[in-house]
Simulated scan of single mutants.
Amino acid sequence: MPEAFVAGLNDNTRHKIVDLLNARLADVISLTLAVKQAHWNLKGPGFIGVHELLDEVADRLRESSDLMAERAVILGGFADGTAEVVAEKTKMKPYPLNESELQFHVEALRERFVDVGKRVREALEEAGEIGDDDTEDLFTEVSRQIDKDAWFIGANMPPKG
């Protein structure tokens, strides 16, 4: 493992945290690509508002990816964010292709945001148990943003019942 730029964490802890960061990095990159897939292909009533929202959401997800990747490097690891690694490591359900209906995309994205958000919350708990409060805090920040964007996207769904 390369040199770490943080004091107070032993090598074993740093290795575990870097692995945890890279696991969630794969999910967040995968989620970003799903958002862009929807952004490019959706059509229907409310198109422009959702289309623009998804660009903003993708930007925020990229910021979250940067936080996780940079933290992995600060801890002396490497950020594993190539398309090949993400395709292999993501736990997110594959995003459907050849869909254009706006409501389909809204529901598919909301479902994936909730799923990735759950894994990020699990990661923040694990980081705390391992003893890295700073990474726990980072995951808390990412979790809050994912929850907020899930809500923004889900607000475009028609009322039930």
Rank of each mutant, 00 (worst) to 15 (best):
E126D: 05
N41P: 10
A83H: 15
E122T: 09
D147S: 14
G8N: 08
R110K: 11
H15I: 03
I74M: 13
I74Y: 08
A72F: 05
F5Y: 14
E52L: 13
L54Q: 07
L75D: 11
V120F: 02
K160H: 04
L61C: 10
E3D: 11
A72I: 00
N156G: 00
Q145T: 14
K36Y: 13
K91R: 15
V6H: 04
G77Y: 04
W151T: 06
N10D: 05
G44Y: 12
K118A: 08
F5L: 12
L67S: 08
R71D: 06
V116Q: 04
V57Q: 13
L97C: 07
T140Y: 10
I146A: 07
G161W: 05
I48H: 12
G131A: 13
R121I: 03
K160D: 06
N22M: 02
V116F: 02
G44H: 13
E52S: 12
E141P: 14
L33C: 05
A79C: 09
I17K: 00
E99W: 07
Q145A: 14
T32G: 06
T82Y: 13
W40Q: 04
L109K: 01
S100A: 11
S100H: 11
K91I: 00
V35K: 01
K118F: 05
A72R: 03
K89N: 13
K43W: 15
R24M: 03
V142Y: 03
L54R: 01
R119T: 03
D27M: 08
A69S: 15
A155R: 14
E84V: 15
I146S: 02
D115W: 04
R121N: 03
N22S: 02
V120S: 03
D115V: 06
E56R: 15
L54E: 08
Q37P: 06
P2G: 07
V85G: 04
I29Q: 00
G76H: 12
L31G: 04
D147L: 14
G161S: 09
L124Q: 03
D80Q: 09
L75Y: 11
